[in-house]
Amino acid sequence: MRVLVVQNFDNEGLGQIGAALVEAGADIDLRKPYHGETLPQDSSEHDAMVMLGGAQNALDDEICPYFPALLDLTRDFADKDRAVLGICLGSQLVARAFGGTNQIGGATEFGWHKVSLTPAAKSDPVLAALPEKFPIFEWHDDTFGLPENAVRLAGSAVAENQAFRLGRAVYGFQFHFEADTPMVRDWSTSFAAMIAERHPDWNDRLDDELARNGADADAAGLAIARAWVATI
């Protein structure tokens, strides 16, 4: 199993997805096109693709001139029935690739928030085993409208579209299920200046929020990661 991982921003790692891929014995091919690394021409040498998050927005072709090629690559994976996973910015790019709308701003969530599964999620191979509501880490300002034929799987009070599926195994997740407790602590240090500008009280409330939500969010995130890897 060979999995292409497209990283769009420094320190945006695989987290629990990486743990699930290692468990499955996957060969991970990490590309950083924002640092000039090339993307594959097509999906022929990979069984699945993961697109991670970033501070850019999904329409930032000027800042990220590789976005159009990434959208083409996403469609090629889908056309060949290969699994695709987009997280945060990645989910917004998946939505864009298949004709969904991108809303820039107006949907800010940061920290652990509750998401609710839709009735369709009860029969979804990735989310069926999850509780109807669970806390998960969020960090975004943007949101998206669903592509035609997408199955809406989860939402929150701020962002109606938190998870969706296209076809058999193309998934977009607005929330950061890969971000377990160690990753959130790392982000809180690595992105301290960026967080302080928008959420100056974060360090004061981090421990309390983690104590309330960390264990449940970590369990949900690992379950999602393992279930998605099983679709490859």
Rank of each mutant, 00 (worst) to 15 (best):
Val3Met: 03
Val6Cys: 00
Asn11Ser: 12
Asn11Cys: 10
Gly15Asn: 07
Ala19Gly: 02
Ala24Lys: 09
Ile28Cys: 08
Lys32Ser: 09
His35Lys: 13
Glu37Leu: 08
Gln41Cys: 05
Gln41Asp: 14
Asp42Gln: 05
Asp42Trp: 03
Glu45Ser: 14
Asp47Cys: 07
Met49Lys: 04
Met51Ser: 03
Leu59Asp: 14
Asp60Phe: 01
Asp61Thr: 14
Glu62Lys: 14
Cys64Met: 11
Leu70Ala: 13
Leu73Trp: 00
Thr74Met: 14
Phe77Tyr: 03
Lys80Ser: 12
Lys80Cys: 12
Ala83Trp: 00
Ile87His: 00
Cys88Val: 00
Gln92Arg: 08
Gln92His: 14
Val94His: 06
Thr101Ile: 04
Ala107Met: 04
Lys114Leu: 13
Leu117Gly: 10
Pro125Asp: 10
Ala129Met: 08
Pro131Ser: 10
Pro131Ile: 08
Trp139Met: 13
Pro147Leu: 07
Pro147Thr: 04
Asn149Tyr: 05
Ser156Met: 10
Val158Asn: 09
Ala159Asp: 09
Ala163Gly: 05
Ala163Ser: 11
Tyr171Pro: 01
Phe175Met: 14
Phe177Ala: 01
Asp180Phe: 06
Ser188Leu: 08
Ser190Leu: 13
Ile195His: 01
His199Cys: 05
Asp204Asn: 15
Asp204Met: 08
Asp207Gln: 13
Asp208Phe: 06
Glu209Cys: 05
Glu209Ile: 02
Gly214Leu: 06
Ala219Arg: 15
Ala220Gly: 08
Gly221Met: 10
Ala223Lys: 13
Ala230Gln: 11
Thr231Tyr: 04
Thr231Leu: 13
